[in-house]
Amino acid sequence: MQQWQDEEGWHIDVRGLPPPQPLVHILRLVQQVGAAGVVIVHHDRDPQLLYPELAQIGWQAERIAAAPGELRLRLSPLP
């Protein structure tokens, strides 16, 4: 698992992790980033467990372009 920051926000690469570890690491980063941040998730599958948790904390997920074999999500607080 890797984590870094650039001008788009915080990135987290959870590819290869078994469930529910992606969920835990992503939500941990979301908690650290706080309400003003954006988190870009690099995943190898659709994180089905994540969406109800995001809804629960008032965040949204948006799929963005990614290389083949990768699923990339942009997470941000609901407006």
Binding site: E8, E53, L54, Q56, G58, Q60, E62, L73, R74
Partner: peptide, 27 residues
């Protein structure tokens, strides 16, 4: 670097369609 935000389309069996950006909704 991640590609610019493309929030835009998702490949589906019926061709590309706009991505949804709903809170916690399935994409």
């Amino acid at each position: 670097r991640p590609s610019p935000r493309a929030a835009l389309t998702i490949d589906t069996p019926h061709g590309p369609r706009p991505a949804r950006t709903l809170a916690g909704a399935f994409i």
